[in-house]
Amino acid sequence: MQKQAAEIRAAALEACAQAASVQELNEVRVKFLGRKGQLTQVLRGMGKLDPEERPRFGKLVNEIRDEIEAALTEREKELFAQEEERRLMAEELDISLPGRKRVRGTMHPVTRIINETKGIFLQMGYQIVEGPEVELDYYNFEALNVPADHPARDMQDTFFFTGELLLRSQTSPVQIRVMEKQDPPVRILAPGKVYRADYDVTHSPMFHQIEGLVVDKGITFAHLKGTLQLFAERMFGSETKIRLRPSYFPFTEPSAEVDVSCIICGGSGCRVCSDTGWLEILGCGMVDPRVLEKVGYDPDEVSGFAFGVGVERLAMLKYGINDIRLLFENDVRFLEQFTG
């Protein structure tokens, strides 16, 4: 009988391994372990054995039953996995097709530069302020130390409405408007539109400037340089160097032009920087004492610095745009490039 049991075991394990589907496997289970199955039959014949052998034989048959049961379960898992694998392969998609398009709009490059700059200066405690675009001659020129007939008026072709009212040619009038209303300390950034009668590849009759002004006790030219160094590093990368060249603006004294190391070639010289390694990006200086006096500040008590950045110039440099007019044409193929 023991031999018979061993044969059943071998046959069952073989049948289990051969089963090609879950259904076949069920048939194997019924054939060997079912109520009328082979192993059950052997157990029923146990009465023929010596009583003292019965427990040993019973144990053996149970072990065989467990073994077959385990093999069946194992095989069932295998077969299920195989079948699922087949089903999934039948569901395969063409993943080379593009996704269902989601459109996110883009921010205008001018706004991007303004927002980036705002972010840098907000961290340094600057207030972002605005002023009118249609300005009085007084704020655009007179209070900035540019009286009538001053040669500096020729530097800017200003749009006029009347003798007194004009489109501001710079964001500097905001300096005056803020200082008139507020006592030092002043720490402001004024982005906005400005206008000059000029139109070519690098000049647009409307463009944007960002004006910065800091007035307090003990403000120095070295503070201005440090502030602009930080700005240049944040805007163009930590490797960026700046250099100051003396310049002339009627409302700052001393005045300087600020160059950054060329962001295209890193300073070795290229077409963009005309082989100088430097790119002019802004004008700055220490606020002229006459300007401070005009707004009722005492130049012996406080000092200040101011700077003005051309936003389009930065955008053109940063994004490699070669014609300023593209910025105001609103061709969607242009606008939609400024993603991310």
Partner: peptide
């Protein structure tokens, strides 16, 4: 000229 930053103010940006 050295590069320095003005002393921090109590004012925060906004």
């Amino acid at each position: 000229l050295p590069s320095e930053l003005p002393a921090d103010t109590a004012q925060s940006g906004g």
